[in-house]
Nucleic acid binder design. Structure first.
Lengths: 325, 325
DNA sequence: TTGTAGGCGTTATCAC
DNA sequence: GTGATAACGCCTACAA
């Protein structure tokens, strides 16, 4: 490996001067600068980032924690974060946490030891006490956290309300909800929005709410049970698209038709929803955009620690497809 | 940040001794060892990985290059690589290359500067000359490369043959192929397998082959054109599942039925294929497994550079679902 | 405008 | 068994 010393020798200057040229800092004579640049070219010299990191205590790396990249909601988020990281010269680290707090803590420590510059968290299992010791800049994405961490999310409650309203508007009379995990803020707010809209309806009882976990299989099971107990359901608001597909499958398995017998609307707007038959009407999040914003805000926090940054809540948009009337 | 020096001071020993304890290397008295460990505990000391990296010239990081993590084939691969990295104490870096050679080269340089320990490449655009200078261990995954890089792949050609055979076996008489990009080895071999099986059939002409690019939209268009020109097609072998979905959509758009009028079989075995209606019969790759093997072999190469490692070709398995008779 | 030298936190060599 | 100390490659006071 060629070092700054080699360059200095070849250009017949000191390492300090080379450093100045590289970083474009301090005074350096035009001619010497040219000599140094020529030497850099000649040797194909590239500064060693590890040495830089050691000196600066910063690594130009940021990490994204997601439950599981196999869940089709996360690749687009990851893509956005990677794009922005890249754009600002950061290296992108991906961590699958499986919603496992132990894993999160382990990652956190490992990454601190590597002088990670910042972390974007899609998490619901990390408490404020656990984050006390950590001083690396962080931001929550998609889900708010117990701690008072800045977050980038969407208006889940309002979006859920709109979804239920749309179902009513298209003629649904008995609307059920397949909810997400009760530990996840997005799921809690979507449930809240649903309840807002139906709590005063005469037909409503808590039987219309089934607890899912954002997975297709669970949604499939819950829907089958739901329709057994409440066969008069003619509309279902599902807390995410992945579960929406499970719901579709369950309805089909029971020989009912969507949207003729039952309308289905879900949440997220991932591409998967265009592939099912029927395709899923959904409240679409600006997924790439929130990932992008989270990365931008994090980098802002990293590079200008004094500037105050704020949480953001973005809007979802009703995307009508085939699963509703 | 607490350093090895702090620990040494507290335990009243030299940094050398602390280092010995941390790394469990060289002789150290039982008692002093206890003292040091106590100090480590007391200070909650963790060694700085950056300093370690600088000294060793290794970073305990490995990277995966994929075209685009949003393509549903890659998350499972990424998950496998991350799991194994993690298991061996490596940090996982994800790079989206967009099949763009410039981006690949840029990543390569950036990562070298960070003393990356190894790279797993899903790539077709990197030539052997470009890799000449680079001395970081690499391995190709899913696709073979122009260079003589060790690779972990599946038996694409044989798998393709089996797919076509199965179509014939279920009664198809005119079998078309929607191929993948002609620059990608997996696509080339799948096409090769198809040709092996049909080249001697009386009906066969090159019109039965359409060039796709592994994307849904292109497959949709190509299929529509195909069926216009060759309306007698009653079976289609599609080079991957994502295109398989596009094919399904095109057939539906033309008011033909799958599998009644046309049977469809594809390749990959991603979960997407279970969601479409009808679900896709496919030649399933052991996706997680090949990702795992690539990571294991790479780490082997990193940690024991002298051991000879070999390319691996894994088997695909026919997975019968609804899109074939 | 340029150079010297100390330090970032570890590890490993070589004395003691 | 243990302790100085010289790297690893870079950056930045401080001098000159």
């Amino acid at each position: 490996m060629t070092t700054i010393r080699d360059v200095a020798k070849l250009a017949d200057v000191s390492v300090a001067t080379v450093s100045r040229v590289i970083n474009d800092k301090g005074y350096v004579n035009k001619d010497t600068k040219n000599r140094v640049e020529a030497a850099i070219q000649a040797l194909d010299y590239r500064p060693n980032d590890v040495a830089r990191s050691l000196f600066k205590g910063k690594s130009k790396m940021i990490a994204l924690f997601v439950p599981d990249i196999k869940n089709p909601f996360f690749p687009e988020l990851a893509r956005a974060v990677e794009d922005i990281s890249n754009q600002y010269g950061y290296t992108f680290i991906l961590c699958n946490t499986d919603n496992n707090n132990k894993k999160e803590i382990t990652y956190l420590q490992a990454l601190s030891q590597k002088s990670i510059d910042g972390i974007i968290l899609v998490s619901s299992t990390m408490s404020s006490t656990q984050m006390k010791g950590i001083k690396v800049p962080m931001i929550a994405l998609d889900r708010k956290m117990e701690s008072d961490l800045i977050s980038v999310t969407v208006n889940n409650r309002e979006g859920a309300r709109q979804a239920v309203q749309y179902l009513k508007q298209t003629g649904c009379q008995r609307i059920a909800h397949i909810a997400g995990p009760e530990t996840v803020s997005s799921a809690i707010h979507r449930l809240g929005g649903y309840v807002d809209e139906v709590k005063n309806d005469a037909w409503f009882t808590s039987h219309y709410i089934r607890a899912g976990d954002y997975s297709m299989d669970k949604a499939f099971e819950e829907t089958k049970q739901l329709l057994e107990i409440e066969p008069d359901v003619d509309g279902i608001f599902v807390a995410n698209d992945v579960m929406g597909v499970g719901v579709l499958k369950a309805i089909k398995a029971l020989n009912k038709r969507v949207p003729k017998d039952i309308s289905v609307i879900s949440f997220d707007g991932i591409e998967l929803g265009t592939i099912s038959t029927p395709s899923l009407t959904t409240m679409a999040q600006p997924i790439y955009h929130i990932g992008k914003r989270a990365a931008e805000i994090l980098i802002q926090k990293i590079e200008h620690p004094k500037t105050k940054v704020q949480s953001e809540e973005h809007e979802v948009t009703l995307t009508i497809r085939e699963s509703t009337r």
